[in-house]
Design a protein around this nucleic acid. Structure first.
Lengths: 218, 218
DNA sequence: CGGGGACTTGATGGTTGTCAAGAAATGTGG
DNA sequence: CCACATTTCTTGACAACCATCAAGTCCCCG
């Protein structure tokens, strides 16, 4: 997994988090945000009735915790991760923003918004097959890992993100294997065999590079 | 429906759009964005296979067309509307931003992101009943209309937004009426009878005012 | 009064959630 | 290195939910 570039003088502001450790707690007043340097992060909401909803996932170059006022969501490390802490007041830092941005004063916010819109498009798909196909394809593009996709999150996290159950996610991935669109070398190691066919399922009719490299959440 | 405040000198920059008229076309390179002054707008994506996905709805104070590079989505007027055109380079204008913002340099972007996250939370709900309940409640809060909610969009738009069919939306609203949670004086005029019960269904356990007044999309 | 669009409702089949069990991967201690 | 426990993942059976197909109703407008 690639690292995002940091100035030498900024290395000291990088914080390390263990697997499942809370990076940003839900419900507190926001004073800072984080850029993922290394690892993988989930952004989610816990509800009083015990339900959990995952808003999105963040990877190196992405931003989490970018909220104002009371935090509606929290961020947790999916794997041991390193994040660069920013004060909430500095938004004009150079960031892994949208390369094609015309003006792009605030790539952190801009690409966060673009990523959120892609998530909305994903969640609006009607069937589990389409949502899982779109999820895998979007993740592979985001991680820029070619055809060999390592899934840093468990099935239940994918399920809570796509509005499905763990069982349906598992069944659907088996169905994608059965159709020859992907292969599973291990539960968390997938190979994308037919990306264009996955794209058709998910309604990804944009030409591969219209979505910026760095996407993010929260 | 309230108007957002504009300086007198800016009135001339307000453009009017008919019902169903395209405000921002999909696929072109973005050069500007719009603030809704009066009316209602839907933001959506058209796919090459004929499917349509609605990303969100925008109302006075909201922002549409805030993208960089090739536009992934378009904006269309739900009802006769007036929008204030901004150049893509000016993001530091005063806007109907999040009132509780700590710093809030760019409320347009910030509240767009917050609204997108709320949409993601809505679309992640597992059942049609929960999604429709959450949609109605969120819309009533956004429009600040008390209990009398006027729906400016047809059923099929709600369906394409929530990832359901028009039939399921209609059936679900009838079910909400049957349960006494809402009343329908007309197809597009609903009364919220039990907001707290709707909130329970949708998992809205936040205390009513944690989400800013002005929300928006795209 | 008649026509058309939007909405509602019924019947049916496919899809997904739930409950349950089992398999596979992972971690731990011997 | 192996045995065991734990967690994660997968799969089956059944019920609940939703999409599809098809009428039918309501309302607006000419």
């Amino acid at each position: 997994m690639a690292e995002s570039t940091l100035l030498f003088s900024e290395i000291r502001n990088v914080q390390k988090f263990m697997r499942d450790e809370t990076i940003v707690p839900q419900g507190e007043s926001a004073t800072c945000w984080y850029e993922v340097v290394h690892g993988a992060v989930r952004v989610c909401q816990y509800h009083s009735d015990g339900r959990r909803q995952i808003i999105g996932f963040a990877f190196p170059g992405d931003v989490v915790g970018l909220e104002w006022g009371m935090r509606q969501s929290c961020a947790e490390a999916l794997v041991p991760s390193q994040l660069f802490r920013h004060d909430l007041s500095d938004l004009s830092l150079r960031m892994g923003g949208v390369p094609t941005a015309v003006n792009g004063e605030h790539p952190a916010l801009e690409s966060a918004l673009a990523a959120a819109h892609q998530s909305i498009a994903l969640l609006g798909l009607p069937t589990a097959l389409e949502r899982v196909a779109g999820f895998l394809l979007a993740l592979a593009r985001r991680l820029n890992c070619g055809t060999l996709l390592c899934l840093p999150m468990p099935r239940v996290d994918i399920a809570d993100y796509l509005g499905l159950t763990m069982h349906t996610v598992s069944r659907t991935m088996s169905e994608l294997v059965r159709r020859g669109l992907i292969a599973l070398d291990a539960p968390n190691r997938a190979r994308i065999l037919a990306p264009e066919h996955l794209g058709e399922l998910a309604g990804f009719d944009f030409p591969e590079d219209t979505v910026g490299e760095a996407q993010l959440v929260a």
